[in-house]
Nucleic acid binder design. Structure first.
Lengths: 197, 197
DNA sequence: GTCTATAGCACGATAGAC
DNA sequence: GTCTATCGTGCTATAGAC
């Protein structure tokens, strides 16, 4: 049931909005409080200090529920597995909240060591691992050409990431994304043609 | 002849260092002045305000001298053209000053509209255009399979960009980049095998 | 072109009443 | 858990002497 948000979550949401727009330094405790509709001092009833808010947001960025079940079975479908992944990636790219979190991630990537490590371990490695496992199975099945699965997985994901960044940059200025919206699917076509036997 | 830097350039260099480390907001006029070895007020003899410093830096980011001569001739060499491009991209990725400018670019990408537009027009489009022209020539020569050259160019560049980001993230924490240093060349091999006829 | 001095403001955070 | 009030700090920028 859609219960009313508690103040703590309201603070986090306001902070995400502001950081996505102005960066961590630009998202002052004052502005966060104003957005929530309380005074600065009231923030400190919910968080020890400003950094604790960011910590919580960073955790939320990397707690993406991700389909990892039946990997072997799904991988045997070959191209349609990759298609499914790309479409899921596309949905996330266009989801309003996920897009905001993506912006926060990029903005803070070079300024927050913990976020950086999570990016490399969670964001990067988790996807790479899943895809590489699937690609390995496809190689065993003789569906695709042989190569280092980890490397091939990165070749598959990089263009998706780049397109996601591109989408995010266009949307921030309210520019049209229609010329690149189909690139997620086109990439799968191109990639599959590149590896299929 | 290697003349002594004037104060103006010293200010810019100090600002690049500080922004790459702390972001634009974290790179205060105070700190920039301290790094140069002058007082804050002296900064204003060289720049109208803080933003003008950033403007200058943004311009420096996108004034990359880029090899565009003899494109047709070079393109006909096929794979070795792509290899040349990737190696140049790799060199830039590991160049200390270019790496700093790359960081500044990523940090400010979502916070500076002008930088964002330059990114899309200069950084992104310029590379894409050059590569797509070369790929078009290769298609005409029957060296590679036919496809939309612009799309194919993006497929070629995305993994290079992703690897560059990866390198930058590792180096900021002084982590080893040797596991991914060869990815630029490996990508060319993989890509060429994907498109060669 | 540099300095000292200072204005004026926004910041993060705390104390204490309700 | 929220408020008012306030503290100390760091910020951008300017005025004016040298």
């Amino acid at each position: 049931m859609p219960k009313q948000q508690n103040t703590r979550q309201k603070i986090i949401d306001a902070a995400i909005d502001l950081i996505a727009e102005k960066g961590y330094k630009g998202a002052s405790v004052r502005k966060i409080a104003a957005k929530v509709g309380i005074r600065e001092s009231a923030i400190y009833n919910h968080f020890k200090n400003k950094e604790e808010i960011l910590k919580e947001i960073v955790e939320q960025i990397f707690t993406t529920p991700f389909e990892t079940e039946n990997l072997e079975e799904r991988a045997k479908k070959g191209k349609s597995f990759l298609h499914q992944f790309a479409v899921a990636y596309k949905l996330v790219s266009f989801d309003k909240r996920m897009e905001k979190l993506f912006r926060v991630m990029i903005i803070e990537l070079f300024q927050n060591r913990k976020l950086r490590e999570s990016f490399l371990q969670e964001f990067h490695q988790k996807d790479i691992h899943q895809i590489s496992k699937a690609l390995f199975i496809m190689m065993q099945e003789g569906m695709i050409r042989s190569a280092d699965p980890m490397f091939m997985a990165q070749e598959f994901i990089s263009p998706l990431f780049y397109t996601r960044l591109h989408v995010s940059l266009l949307r921030i200025d309210a520019k049209s994304t229609s010329p690149i919206a189909t690139q997620f699917e086109k990439h799968v076509d191109f990639f599959w043609e590149s590896i299929a036997l």
